[in-house]
Every structure is written in structure tokens, then in C-alpha cells.
Write a protein that binds this DNA or RNA. Structure first.
Length: 148
DNA sequence: GCCAACGTTGGC
DNA sequence: GCCAACGTTGGC
């Protein structure tokens, strides 16, 4: 799950404990959100950061439900096609799980042979703010992150 | 700021 | 259904 740290970082999540992952406005990303189950773990990725990379781990604590920011005209992600009666966009709630000793920079992910084939590194979904991660890739990144 | 790689929109 | 124009993402 990607977030720009200037907007919302892993440290913000540590402070808040949990947060609503709102603002997703891409159908494919939304569908991945809908596939999440309570207890699922997710990598928290800092995009548009210096450097970009995986900053930690969060955990799904509430499954997909309507994203109210979509029908708030004052919200930057307002989408008038979504209404309370017919919601178009969903969000999940996630809880802080851990912040890595040192974020794993994108450059390091690219350089790791065992991570080749990750959606994040290549393929159609690489730009999505919510995307799937294979378990072996997830585990490898967590190991790298904990090592610092 | 640039730009590649997408997705979305809307005319036809 | 096609496709041009436009918007977005996000690394660099």
C-alpha cells in the first residue's frame, strides 16, 4: 500500500494506531482493497519520497466499506459518481504493525535477485497504490527491513 | 521539471 | 469498438 509520507507516513500510522485507507480512485486498486481480509499484512510503501521505499508493515483490521471522502465535495478525492446510496469507492482500515529499522529503498528492491518479478518493480499494476505482494517477496522485504 | 506508462473520457 | 486527447502516477 503506497502513501506519500508528506501526506501520511508510517510514523503517522504509529502515532494514530489505526487509519482509514481512503482516497483510492482506481478500479483495479479498489478491487485489490476488496480482496483484503482482517488480519492480512501489508507493506507500507513511501512513494514520492527521498528515497522511495518500503517503510514498514500494517495490518488490515476492517474489510472494505464505502469511502465517504468520495461524496465530500470539499475533499480532494471527491467523485460525484459515488453517493451514499450507491457508493463507488471503498476503503479498509489498517493498524500499525511495525516500522522498519531502516526503510528498504526501491533501489535495494530492484537490486535484490529474489524480488525480481514483484508487481512493484515491473508490470501493468506497478503504479497502483494498492497492489498484491507474493508471500516470499513480502517475507524477504521484511527481513531486509528488520536488518536495517 | 521531465517523461514513460498507464487509465479514463468522449467523439465518432 | 476505436482512438485521440487528456489526466495521473511516481521515479528520476
Amino acid at each position: 500500500m503506497k502513501s506519500e509520507p508528506d501526506v501520511y507516513s508510517i510514523d503517522d500510522l504509529r502515532r494514530d494506531g489505526t487509519t482509514c485507507w481512503d482516497g483510492v480512485r482506481n478500479y483495479q486498486a479498489r478491487n485489490f482493497l476488496r480482496g483484503m481480509r482482517v488480519g492480512d499484512l501489508a507493506l507500507f510503501y513511501h512513494s514520492n519520497a527521498k528515497p522511495p521505499g518500503v517503510a514498514g508493515v500494517c495490518r488490515v483490521v476492517r474489510e472494505a466499506y464505502p469511502d465517504p471522502t468520495a461524496w465530500d465535495p470539499s475533499d480532494g478525492h471527491y467523485d460525484p459518481r459515488s453517493t451514499p446510496g450507491r457508493p463507488l469507492w471503498d476503503m479498509v482500515d489498517v493498524a500499525f504493525e511495525e516500522a522498519f529499522a531502516a526503510p528498504v529503498p526501491l533501489e535495494a528492491l530492484k537490486a535484490e535477485p529474489r524480488l525480481q518479478g514483484m508487481v512493484l518493480l515491473s508490470g501493468k499494476a506497478m503504479r497502483l497504490s494498492v497492489q498484491p505482494v507474493a508471500k516470499q517477496h513480502f517475507d524477504r522485504i521484511v527481513r531486509l527491513g528488520r536488518a536495517g
